[in-house]
Amino acid sequence: MSEQWRLLQTGYANAFANMAIDKAILVAHSNEKVPPTVRFYGWAPPAISIGYFQSLVEEIDINACHRLGVDYVRRITGGGAVFHEKELTYSIVIAESHPTIPKNILKSYARVCGAVMKGLQQLGISSEYAPINDIVTDGRKISGNAQTRKLKTVLQHGTVLMDVDVDTMFSLLKVPNEKIKDKLIADVKQRVTSIRHCLGKEVSFKQVAGAMKGGFEEEFHVDLIEGVLTDEERNLAKQFENESFSTKEWNQRR
């Protein structure tokens, strides 16, 4: 019989709650309170997340975010700024010591990305892993991923783009050189794609989630059993949301 992992479908939440829930699962799993967990979620309102090492004010036009009703949050993972709107976001939390997870960090990125690629394949989209942390189809990015390792536990989360709005994204992000902004936007439009663009039709969040469930099960040879956050996880998440992710101290720390 296959190993059973937990699947959480937490639906849409705001940026602070979303990041807090991922961290709460990491802590709960490190205390052996919950099984390895795969989570699918979305963002409402839309939000920008920045990598742990990025400078908030250098990356994001905060006034534009306020004007357009877009939240912003610093992740506990490194990597770049992401505009989360029409996408499915996944996270996976699993002990570093689990035999299925390569000790080598880059290899473990590739392994988890393999699950996303198998999920995309179920939707009819062939893709490949593009180190360091992207998945591309026909050379264009369809998924970005970021991993941290804390408390002997791996947390990787990433996006699966269902649709993409590069113009809105660039109205929210700062660019190092305003003069070349138009060219940059044109370049990014060439380099990024989405499920809708690949298939020429809208695919629902539920359909993408179904495909991704299959992808993770196939990659890791497990059964994902739908579950819920424990009370302890919900309390931890509330605590992390209030004490860090929603605070100026956390978000503007760099």
Binding site: G79, I105, R149
Partner: peptide
């Protein structure tokens, strides 16, 4: 000195 960017550092706090 402040070092920022879209790289990855393990463990993060070490930066």
């Amino acid at each position: 000195i402040r070092i920022t960017g879209d790289f990855f550092v393990y463990p993060e706090e070490a930066l």
